[in-house]
Write a protein that binds this DNA or RNA. Structure first.
Length: 849
RNA sequence: GCCCGAGUGGUGGAACUGGUAGACGCACUGGAUUCAAAAUCCAGCGCCCGCAAGGGCAUGUCGGUUCGAUUCCGACCUCGGGCACCA
């Protein structure tokens, strides 16, 4: 029996595609284009199974569209700046640049071994000065357009390592290396003014109809447009404090005013109140992560001040500083209405403040209404609220607004949750911010001709602080404006900036401008973007913002970067960890005995954690290479597409790989052992009997696979291909050769996007001298897809009692008669006459007895 | 804490727009082939009652709408993603 040699075949066809430049894209406005892009990888060292899934999906679409006649752009690059390179530099003493490029070299070979239909001539890494030069230029353009500004912001400060920590480097309030309690500190930082586009970014979501609904909803909530009021409270010390509220209707239910620990007034008060200063320091110990702040136990500090109620100056409310009030949202100060806000209620219960319901559900007596420990946030009628009593919530909001505005105490405003994008990073392995600080001229952009501002070659990591800041040779430069001694900005850009425009650069990677307008006009927007759901908000929102900038500066005419978005599920795997929060272990380091896990070759027990997103930090990562080595790329590609719907998470299991391998062999055997076939292109003529059946199966498969790939339902396409293979296997040996050829060719072409090497080999075996990648996608004959008869179920009282096979065109009456004549129906009716018969043509008959 | 998802046999999942629940794959069981094995082929495979014919139960839980609900509505449970310096 002939065996398919995957390794040999894959190397061969990859060489053929490369030699023929099959996947090199050319800008050609005369042809319809399709730009397929997967989120580019961080060069961590080796590709992991999640990459395999992501790039396989994109590759299937790229090859499918190509077969359908589109001019396809399918490029690849590297998101090459980031923390892991710094960690490697620090831990292993390597140069981050060398480490990164070595990783890229390894991963490029691994991706090539997957047989991806990628235009490698467009490859770049974001750490290439050739790339970040243009990014620096764009930064300056954003700056000159007023979309970049400098302001103070909080960071996580590690007082021992003298460095800023990422949120993931803060563990339970402690620095991950030093173990020192982390402080929140203010630094002057650069911001992109993304909030200038809040409304636009929100509104345009409605038009992104090829984006998943959930991503649009997540972005909508992230932008968080809310209508409310800003208004002022007079404080007992003569100051006023402005609050923002979306529920001004509940003002008569107020029982306290609370300031953020970061509020300017708090800082003022803390200067004269050491206890308050200590409280603020305590609050800051949780770091900057919102999740940490919001899940921390509610804490408040009574300042001793009081605030006068805006509608009754004699009504005094206590003024607290509270850890759950965020400075970044609204005004950084709130009035607390415990009856109608859960956080306020938790706070009020803890500090024994009054809880007065002022909105009660329709028809409920306010006197008997008690919120208990659950705030009432539903609709209702105002009560205990003087002139608002009896109004509904909307009317009460309007009335409060009218009165406060008339009194000059406040105004209606639209508030957004979205904050400006902080892009300064005190890190050496990133794109340098092209700004110079001059004692005389202030902040001055680097001159165009002096770009790129390149990172120094001699980054030193073995002391505390930022290596760029310590590198005086690099840092000290003359002012671009006056020429006097000045210093560079020693911060680098958030790596999300790098990934906010790379898709536009791919349109033409040779241009000396950031983006070539003509190429961008042809290729943009990306027709199908594919990546992990974990990027649903930040990366995608930043890229949308950046695209608006690119348009403003004349680089493109599109508003939106990604016309179609698909978020694949993550590949998950169990985690292994030493006892009591010990070190994480990779699956390779662990062996299982009797349902328990141990360090390989020892009796040291290891805790098995839940299946989670594969991540470097938790080491629950498996390597695709051994699988590719053992079975070939086609097998692992097929596996990644089979079974699980692409948007859903999958748990990696090894059981399926062998099944995929067997199927690859089976397709190969079907082609090689097909027997006598007429030459390619032979006419089929009229088929009947088994021949017609096989033709129907073939055309049904073509129609279904085409439809499934269009909708990115890879797992269903795989199932339809199995069915076709089964139909070919089961078909009579005396089916006409031309019919068999048609079925086999369809099978090969349909598997082409998924198992491209195998398909080329089989195409060759079937006598074709050309390539599958140059062969048009098969077309289904509608006449062969639909049969004349249809089998429909017959139910009695909703329970299935039989089925009838009947002409599609059958009349209601004859369907009914056939259904009532069924044995099972007669038995179920037991002589009773049917009360009602529901006939849904081509679907079902339901008899109500 | 807040926002967003997902839950169907032993297992991954399928089911078009409210119309036969379990397509297709994996695992497993039995058989053929083989000196034996691998590979391959054939058959079976949700659970319960029944010799069978057949009947009952079943899509995370509880309720609702409907002739009919995996699908729509409400409440809850469990798991996962994001929360702005991981990428």
């Amino acid at each position: 029996m002939a065996r398919y040699n995957a390794k040999e075949s894959e190397i061969h066809w990859q060489a053929v595609w490369t030699a023929r430049q099959s996947f090199v894209a050319h800008t050609d406005p005369a042809r319809p284009k399709c730009y397929v892009l997967e989120m580019f990888p961080y060069p961590s060292g080796r590709i992991h199974i999640g990459h395999v899934r992501n790039y396989t999906m994109g590759d299937v679409i790229a090859r499918f569209r190509r077969a359908q006649g589109f001019n396809v752009l399918h490029p690849m690059g590297w998101d090459a700046f980031g923390l892991p390179a710094e960690n490697a530099a620090r831990d292993k003493g390597v140069n981050p640049l060398e480490w990164t490029y070595a990783n890229i070299a390894t991963m490029r070979e691994q991706l090539k071994a997957m047989g991806l239909a990628i235009d490698w001539s467009r490859e770049f890494a974001t750490c290439d000065p050739e790339y970040y030069k243009h990014q620096q230029k764009l930064f300056i353009e954003f700056y000159e357009a007023g979309l970049v500004y400098r302001s103070e912001a909080d960071v996580n400060w590690d007082p021992v390592d003298q460095t800023v920590l990422a949120n993931e480097q803060v563990i339970d309030g402690l620095g991950w290396r030093s173990g020192a309690p982390v402080e929140r500190r203010k630094l002057a930082q650069w911001f992109f003014k993304i909030t200038a586009y809040s409304d636009d970014l929100l509104e345009a979501l409605d038009r992104l109809d090829r984006w998943p609904e959930k991503v649009r909803l997540m972005q909508k909530n992230w932008i968080g447009r809310s209508e409310g009021m800003r208004f002022a409270f007079d404080l007992s010390n003569g100051a006023t404090v402005e609050v923002f509220s979306t529920r001004p209707d509940t003002l008569f239910g107020a029982s306290f005013v609370a300031l953020s620990p970061d509020h300017p007034l708090t800082e003022e008060l803390a200067k004269r109140d050491p206890k308050l200063a200590a409280f603020v320091a305590e609050c800051r110990r949780v770091g900057t992560a919102e999740a940490a702040i919001e899940t921390a136990e509610k804490m408040g500090y009574d300042t001793g001040l009081t605030a006068a109620h805006p509608f009754d100056q004699t009504w005094k409310l206590p003024v607290y500083v509270a850890n759950f009030v965020l400075m970044g949202y609204g005004t950084g100060a709130i009035f607390g209405c415990p009856a109608h806000d859960q956080r306020d209620l938790d706070f009020a219960r803890k500090y024994h403040l009054s809880v007065v319901p002022v909105v009660v559900p329709q028809g409920v007596d306010p006197k008997s209404f008690d919120v208990g420990n659950e705030a009432y946030v539903g609709p209702g009628v105002l009560a205990n609220s003087r002139f608002l009593d009896g109004l509904d919530v909307a009317a009460a909001k309007a009335e409060v607004a009218k009165r406060l505005e008339a009194a000059g105490r406040g105004e209606r405003t639209v508030n957004y949750r979205l904050r400006d994008w902080l892009v300064s990073r005190q890190r050496p392995w990133g794109c340098p911010i092209p700004m110079v600080h001059c004692g005389d001229c202030g902040v001055v952009p680097v001159k165009d001709g002096d770009l790129p501002v390149k990172l120094p070659d001699d980054l030193v990591f073995n002391t505390a602080g930022n290596p760029l800041d310590r590198n005086t040779a690099w840092k000290n430069v003359p002012c671009p404006s006056c020429g006097k001694p000045a210093r560079r900005d020693t911060d680098t850009l958030d790596t999300f900036v790098d990934s906010s425009w790379y898709f536009a650069r791919f349109c033409d990677t040779t241009t000396d401008k950031p983006v070539d307008r003509a190429a961008a006009d042809y290729w943009l927007p990306v027709d199908q973007y594919i990546g992990g759901i974990e990027h649903a908000i930040l990366h995608l929102l930043y890229a949308r913002f950046f695209t608006r900038g690119l348009k403003k500066f004349g680089y493109t005419s599109v508003d939106e970067p990604f016309a179609g978005l698909f978020t694949q599920g993550m590949v998950c795997l169990e985690t292994y960890r030493g006892h009591n929060g010990g070190a994480w272990y990779t699956p390779d380091e662990v062996e299982k005995r009797g349902g328990k896990a141990f360090l390989k070759g020892t009796d040291v027990p290891v805790e098995i954690g839940p299946s989670e997103k594969m991540s470097k930090s938790k080491k629950n990562v498996i390597a695709p290479e051994p699988i590719i080595d053992a079975y070939g790329a086609d097998t692992i590609r097929w596996f990644m597409l089979s079974d699980s719907p692409p948007e859903r998470d999958i748990d990696w299991t090894e059981t399926g790989a062998e099944g995929c391998w067997r199927f690859a062999q089976r397709v190969y055997r079907l082609a090689t052992e097909a027997g006598e076939l007429p030459p390619p292109g032979a006419a089929i003529g009229q088929a009947a009997g088994p021949g017609l059946e096989l033709r129907r199966a073939t055309h049904r498969a073509v129609a279904a696979v085409t439809e499934d790939l269009d909708a990115l339902r890879f797992n269903r396409a795989v199932a339809r291909i199995y069915e076709l293979a089964n139909a070919i296997t089961a078909s009579d040996a005396d089916v006409p050769g031309a019919v068999r050829r048609e079925a086999l060719e369809a099978l090969v072409l349909l598997t082409g996007p998924m198992m491209p090497h195998l398909a080329e080999t089989c195409w060759n075996v079937l006598g074709h001298g050309d390539l599958v990648v140059d062969t048009p996608w098969p077309k289904a004959d509608p006449a062969l897809v639909h049969s004349d008869t249809v089998t429909i179920a017959v139910q009695v009282n909703g329970k299935r009692r039989g089925e009838i096979t009947i002409s599609r065109a059958a009349e209601q009456k004859s369907i009914e008669a056939a259904a009532l004549a069924l044995d099972g129906v007669v038995r179920a009716l037991d002589g009773k006459p049917p009360r009602r018969v529901i006939v849904v043509p081509e679907r079902i008959v339901n008899i109500v007895a």
